[in-house]
Simulated assay, not measured.
Amino acid sequence: MSVLELRAVSKVYGQGVTEVVALHDVDLAVDPGQMVAVMGPSGSGKSSLLTIAGSLEAPTSGEVLVGGGKLAEMSRDELARLRRRSIGYVFQDFNLLPGLTAVENVSLPLELDGLSARRARAAGMTALERLDLADRAGHFPDQLSGGERQRVAIARAVVGDRRLLLADEPTGALDSSTGEAVMRLIRQACKQGVAAVVVTHDAQSASWADRVIFLRDDRVTDGTSPPAGPESLLAPGPGFPSGPAL
């Protein structure tokens, strides 16, 4: 059974002359252990796809299922529980709580779900260590660089027993070496059965995925397995947009 399914999902914002179609009849299934990269030009609906997949907003039409459960049939409490326990989300703007340290930000979802503070902090520290942030665990977000805040957000998204990881440009604020470490961590989560959807403009990051899909003009226009190396993603060719579309 797929961890995530989008069935004929459409999303429309506004009405009349202000109407904007973000997604139109999008179908997508992501299985356990699979990483799917989503690429496409700005405004093609990539971020809308993630927020709908993560139950942060509802589609205008179509169905979204996570772990076989239909999101439209869940109560607000059930959706909150699903996000807390099963879905890890990496936002472009990090969304870290300014009054909590790095390790407290990472361990908070586990504590909210009833894990003891000691065990939650231990799990948080492990996640930070994997991203070379153990020495920054006691620092607050405004004491961290942009790249460090991004890595804390990644650690928070993968800590605990998550089934679905949704990442919006997870390597956007990172240098190539740290970006590779982040993608390796996401890949490691997939090896443990997590399903991941990663929105990216970066061909190097997309090359870590099992599948690459493209959004253009609110539709999925092509899907493919990544070629042998990231350099081939940079070259124009069938199914791969060139220039600013990446």
Rank of each mutant, 00 (worst) to 15 (best):
P230S: 10
P32R: 10
L234G: 07
G43P: 00
D31S: 13
A157M: 12
K11A: 02
L144I: 07
F140E: 00
D218H: 12
P109F: 02
E57D: 14
G67T: 06
G243N: 11
L50F: 05
G67H: 11
V90S: 09
T101Q: 04
D27A: 12
F214L: 13
D27K: 09
V20H: 13
L65Q: 11
G179R: 01
P226E: 14
T200E: 14
Q192E: 14
L174D: 14
V220C: 11
E169Y: 08
G172L: 11
L50S: 05
S75F: 08
S55L: 03
A120I: 08
G124N: 01
L165D: 02
G43H: 10
D218P: 02
Q92L: 06
T101D: 06
D168P: 01
G147C: 09
E5S: 03
G179P: 10
I154G: 06
N95M: 09
F91R: 04
L28F: 13
L100T: 02
M1D: 15
A72G: 15
P59N: 10
V64K: 00
R216K: 13
R162Y: 01
V159R: 13
R119H: 13
S205F: 03
E78G: 14
G239F: 02
G179W: 04
S2K: 12
L23I: 12
R83H: 02
E5G: 03
R118P: 00
E169H: 11
N105K: 04
L65N: 07
I87Y: 00
F94D: 07
C190H: 06
G33N: 01
G40R: 09
P226Q: 11
D135T: 08
H139Q: 15
R156P: 01
V90P: 03
E231V: 15
L166C: 05
L96N: 10
S44L: 11
E231N: 12
R163W: 03
A72M: 09
E63C: 03
T178C: 09
R7I: 14
F91C: 01
E63F: 06
S47P: 07
D27V: 10
S207L: 04
V198L: 12
L133M: 15
W208M: 08
T18E: 06
S116A: 09
G99I: 02
E231G: 08
H24A: 08
L82M: 12
T200G: 13
V159Q: 13
V66F: 00
L79V: 07
G99W: 09
P41I: 06
L215E: 00
V38M: 06
K11T: 05
L108D: 06
V212E: 11
A134M: 05
G68V: 15
L56W: 02
R162Q: 14
G45L: 00
